[in-house]
Amino acid sequence: MDYHEHHVKHRGEDAFGLVVLVVSVLLLWKSYTIAGFSALSSPGAFPMAASAVMVFSASLVVIGNARRRGRLSGEEILPRTVVLFTALVIAYAAALVPLGFLPASFLFLILAMKLLYRASWLRSLIIALASLALVYIVFRLVFQVVLPQGIVPEDEILAMFRHHPAPEAP
């Protein structure tokens, strides 16, 4: 099923295939524990079928990888920028609740643009503020998605705008 003999192998491709196979075997076992072979209509029947298919095709991939003696590609799978940026994004997600959406996103945008583009402070600042304002208006104000608040008491500030100075506001 797997015909690309002439293809160049990527670094870690064999290992990735093995990991996929191991994961699929674990999923098959986990599917079996849902209801065993109790009934054709059991909640475990479909997961077992799907994971069995996964085990079978993952085995084909692993066998195909083993047969192929391709030249190893010199290409870097995980360049430094990707690792750094991914770490930054994870830090951003982790900061969403304690810091709140607005400060966390602001910091993320500034740092990410500095990391990737070396943009000037002023430019980063303008882009970050403008895009955040847009996102906030669309998601929080129009679509009423309550974003994590963190250290900025948005609700209280919004309520103030709404009820005190301008009672005719919607």
């Binding site: 945008l109 643009m113 990737l116 070396r118």
Partner: peptide, 10 residues
């Protein structure tokens, strides 16, 4: 890309 990618992530 250096500006677009952070915005896509946001």
């Amino acid at each position: 890309k250096g500006i677009l990618i952070p915005l896509i992530l946001l």
